[in-house]
């Protein structure tokens, strides 16, 4: 006889939550799958080839690379960031307040922590798939120079989680979506623009450069660039990695508390 679900180990339960999210996505995947393949091609063609054409005419190489190769990894991690943001605010608020699907989930043997784990692993799964597609597209544009590039899909996952985990924790405490657009305008958009994504950090005046270090996306961008070319100082890379891991861990730890408070207390 099969062991009842409630007696099995935690992972068996949050697997259910993963499936639940996967099935929900199964209803709506068409448009977003087309986007996840086409958007990287669009961005690389416009920014990499189009603007790259202008850059090479004036500046030549940027940090020893063509502009296309310079921005390709940052487009991958910004896409990963945007997935983490998009999946973690409105969908989570809907699930804990408007449609209350998470309340339905915890009326089964699932615990709130299982729902959180299922949500995050599902977002990570999507990020992995998107990261693989993106890496292939970047490769097709000839922007990969090292076997380390094979770690780019994993970097995509880590970047997504570094944003998704804290944002899910926040969204489970929200009473309305009033603050979400403000977060986009004043946090996500500036982060996208100013994390040395589209131009080297050396472009900033000296006194601004340390500030860029405070931006989480900057660390993901730096790791992505290092992976694409297979070069970088180990200590610096470890520091970048630590920032992303710390954000993820902190987000999960806080999220476990907030989602339990929201769903059962």
């Amino acid at each position: 006889m099969e062991t009842p679900l409630e007696n099995r180990a935690g992972w068996a339960r949050w697997q259910r939550a993963w499936w639940y999210h996967a099935m929900q996505y199964g209803q709506t995947w068409r448009g977003s799958v087309a986007g996840s393949v086409l958007f990287p091609i669009f961005y690389l063609a416009a920014m990499g080839v189009g603007v790259g054409h202008l850059v090479s005419a004036h500046t030549g190489l940027v940090q020893g690379q063509t502009y296309l190769h310079f921005i390709a990894p940052s487009l991958l991690v910004t896409t990963a960031m945007q997935l983490g943001e998009g999946e973690s605010l409105w969908p989570v608020l809907a699930a804990v307040k408007w449609v209350r699907t998470y309340h339905a989930a915890v009326s089964t043997p699932l615990e709130p922590e299982d729902v959180l784990a299922g949500k995050l692993t599902w977002v990570a799964t999507r990020s992995l798939a998107g990261g693989i597609v993106y890496t292939i597209v970047i490769g097709a544009f000839g922007a990969l120079h090292s076997w380390w590039a094979l770690t780019l899909p994993l970097l995509s996952v880590l970047t997504t989680l570094a944003f998704a985990a804290p944002l899910v924790a926040y969204a489970t405490t929200a009473e309305s979506d009033a603050s979400f657009p403000t977060l986009y305008r004043f946090a996500f958009v500036p982060m996208f623009l100013f994390s040395a994504t589209f131009f080297p950090v050396a472009s900033y005046p000296g006194y601004l450069r340390p500030l860029v270090q405070l931006v989480p996306l900057y660390h993901a961008v730096a790791l992505g660039r290092a992976a694409a070319v297979g070069a970088g100082a180990p200590a610096a890379l470890a520091a970048h990695l630590l920032v992303l891991v710390a954000l993820t861990v902190a987000g999960v730890l806080v999220g476990r508390r907030t989602i339990r408070r929201r769903l059962v207390d």
């Binding site: 850059v55 500046t59 500036p190 623009l193 472009s203 900033y204």
Partner: peptide, 18 residues
């Protein structure tokens, strides 16, 4: 939002593209 975009282009791409 447009301020951020213009600022970012002013700092970065402006110099790279000439």
């Amino acid at each position: 939002e447009p301020l951020f975009y213009l600022l970012s282009i002013g700092i970065g791409l402006n110099r790279l593209v000439g």
